[in-house]
Design a protein around this nucleic acid. Structure first.
Lengths: 209, 209, 209, 209
DNA sequence: GATGAATGAGACTTCATTCAT
DNA sequence: GATGAATGAAGTCTCATTCAT
């Protein structure tokens, strides 16, 4: 019977959520503490400081992503097209299942180069993502072109997440993931308004209230 | 005849640069003032506060982009494929000609939904971009599909800019723009490792030092 | 008509007094601010931080001592024995005219080697003191021996000030200064209980309440 | 047979060392605990609080000094001049055998009058020292003058220790002890540059690097 | 219009202390 | 007896903002 998640993890969870939705600078240590039932000072039992919390949160995302998302690309028992589909589905679920916000992208843009500890982690995360995609694609496209396609797919997904912050419309992310799957499966298509369909889009770019 | 830059404009310029490269919260009013030779208190002659400065900076970006970038998509004297190429080139130049950082994306992620004044402007910016792209694409793809393609292209470009923050590699943005052009010009291609070429990429994902 | 002392000086004054009587770590910036009618944050208009305040306070003591105390040793119009007497009298007045506490000694012992900025200033202060004494003594004792005697006199005076912190008895400091004067003036003597006098000291070491 | 050091003694040892070298306020309970292999909370099994630790440390210094240093002045089997020499040697060894720092002087200056518990102990320490010196000197100088000379000697020694904190030069302390011995032994002299000797002092006041 | 002193809220952080386990 | 989580007060410092000059 596993004991309840350690408090350290609770702090990371709370911080992750807050950093993602409100930004790093806009989140205070007191808020993080309050979010997991602690007082400001208590957080410093587990972490050396705010940066340390953020670093742990980034590490958590990296580890989680490796295990639950990027790892899907490496299963040798599954044919590559299905592996790609699994990966893309996981990515879509991961980013769409929230009101928006990508910790990696957020921190990358917010702190820029001012905190090298963060940049290295963000880089590692995108490297992992790229490696996962490349592994699935290189059989068909060769290593070089597969790498490019991986980068392109990541960019499009990240950009979709960013746009979702404003539009609250998950369709862009969905299409990005569908098109990625299509790289190995021609039957897949992202086009909602595909030839002949031309469904009505009374409001082409859905705005949130 | 270029009118003399007012002090107000100078503040906006400085703020724009600082917000983009260092983030909104990470930039102090004193720094903005110092960057244009003023003292902190003087800034408040021109602006009601920090948010007001940022709003003005966003408005500046919106106006500039309309005039210098998105406007290129509406020139009736130029055939659509060329208009699209002009637009894509301008976008690439705009984002690649710096060490990185996109004010719109940055603010969208950093302040999230906490400052509605910002969100509305970010939204307007992306709307402008989408409208420009859609206008060029709808002749070929129809309004609905053109809108989707526009959103996809914007997402990919924004994501490329975000990745550039980390990788410092402009290639992803370049391919994003080339592929956008290819939507109307089949001769255009982004693939460096295109069929038959398969150049070696000893370092598939270039990292900055 | 010189304007009133600048506020920066007021902060230094207040800090000097507080650091001396309560110690560096035991004095908060808020206390310093309150002591000169400011609020905590206002002090940071003049100083970069607490260390900066202390450094300025040390500089003030160094400058004041040079001008009002150690400078007395260099007046060529006064014969050395009288110069030495003037110097010793000034030292005695300077340290006795308070309830105790020597900023230099205090900081030297309290922060030890942890703040090099402080140590350098303390060193400079004692160097000034030694140079002043040596200048007066070297005519009679030669440079080498004069230097030693200067160091010894400084040590004794400093020690007396330290003891005064506990005993509140200025007699030890007075004798230290008298004996220093006696180095050039045999008529001077510090001994209260000198031969023939032998006054009664019912309580040899006076304790403060 | 030396009894086994209790944990309580270990805490006192560690505290003594830390308070002396880093100051009272600059030393945290956690550091004291860590220095003797305990955790912060465990210290409170032995002491009521930080002040209590410091009080015990001062008591330890008082007891140690009585036994190992000041006690040397009271041995009736040794003639006074030799007793004085023994005492002075012990003082010199005690203070010179470290990189500097005198707990008594440090606490006296650092906490000033704010903690009466400390002041009383510092006073007792100096009283012990004075009593020891007076006992040796009064046969020759009479009680009153002996008390003065004792105070003067203590002041000079304490001042020398304080200077050593800055200069790292033990010579001042050595001369202070030699001159004290000379009070009963005319053959003793502290003067390095004494008549006929006149050794070179290329650097009259040695500074630490 | 410009200044710079002053503010006061709030940020991050430290730390002596308590206490349930 | 020992632990280590939790506390809460206090400390240093930042910064958007105001305002008299």
């Amino acid at each position: 019977m596993p004991t309840r998640k350690t408090d350290r993890d609770a702090v990371i969870d709370a911080a992750l959520e807050l950093f993602r939705t409100r930004g790093y600078h806009h989140t205070s240590v007191a808020e993080i503490a309050a979010a997991c039932g602690l007082l400001k000072g208590s957080v410093y039992h587990y972490f050396a400081g705010k940066q340390d919390i953020a670093a742990a949160a980034l590490d958590r995302v990296i580890a989680d992503s490796r295990q639950k998302i990027f790892g899907l690309a490496g299963d040798p028992a599954v044919p590559p097209p299905q592996r790609l589909r699994n990966l893309a589905d996981a990515v879509e679920r991961y980013f769409a299942g929230r009101d928006g916000g990508c910790l990696m992208g957020s921190l990358a843009l917010e702190v820029g180069d001012s905190i090298p500890e963060f940049r290295a982690r963000v880089q590692r995360y995108f490297d992992d993502w790229k490696a996962a995609l490349t592994a699935v694609l290189e059989g068909r496209y060769g290593a070089a072109r597969a790498g490019e396609l991986a980068e392109d797919a990541i960019a499009r997904a990240q950009g979709a997440v960013l746009l979702m912050e404003v539009t609250k419309d998950p369709a862009v992310l969905r299409r990005a993931c569908r098109d990625t799957v299509a790289l190995l499966d021609p039957n897949e298509t992202s086009a909602a308004g595909s030839p002949g369909a031309a469904r009505e889009h009374p409001e082409p770019w859905k705005h949130a209230s």
